[in-house]
Design a binder for these strands. Sequence first.
DNA 1: TAGGCCATCTGGTCCT
DNA 2: AGGACCAGATGGCCTA
Length: 175
Amino acid sequence: MKAKAKAARRRRPVNLEDIHEQRASSEEHLVKCPSYKDKRKGEDEELVKISSKKRRETANREEHSTRRLESNERERQRMHKLNNAFQALREVIPHVRAEKKLSKIETLTLAKNYINTLTATILNMSSGCATPGQEGSPANGGKLFQHYQQQHSDEDNDGHLKKYSTQIHSFRKGS
DNA sequence: TAGGCCATCTGGTCCT
DNA sequence: AGGACCAGATGGCCTA
């Protein structure tokens, strides 16, 4: 199924424009239907009788509702930004299933292990190739390596690569 | 049909 | 005070 069609079927968010549209169409209806307008006139006279407290409550409700809609809109934008970031992450992680989108949890898990794999590779290279006095010398590489070892004392370097490739394949299997 | 994934709404809390 | 962030609830879509 096309993503666009799928997205169109999702719940349509309610926003301020919808509310304004509803209110506008309601006013339009009053203009188009005079008899209904007369009826409303009677109701309006009744409304004058209600206490100022009730009117304030109504105003507060409307204000609250407006603020809620504004917050909802901001929350949607925030989630869209988050999803864009997920998409950007998906695009830089090498994985097997190009035809099916990685889920969020898969993306995070693969990313974590991909980073571990790259880190381990860099550390291997820097400790094996650098010569004393050069940038990235064993002195620097050694500190990096110690720091890395402290954080990953329970796993070896090959372990990361195995874990990463196993996960790629298990995700493919799971699909 | 159940379970997974996702988008949205909502109220609470934190931060500026 | 108002916006950002978070987590729980809800409901829609998809797949096995």
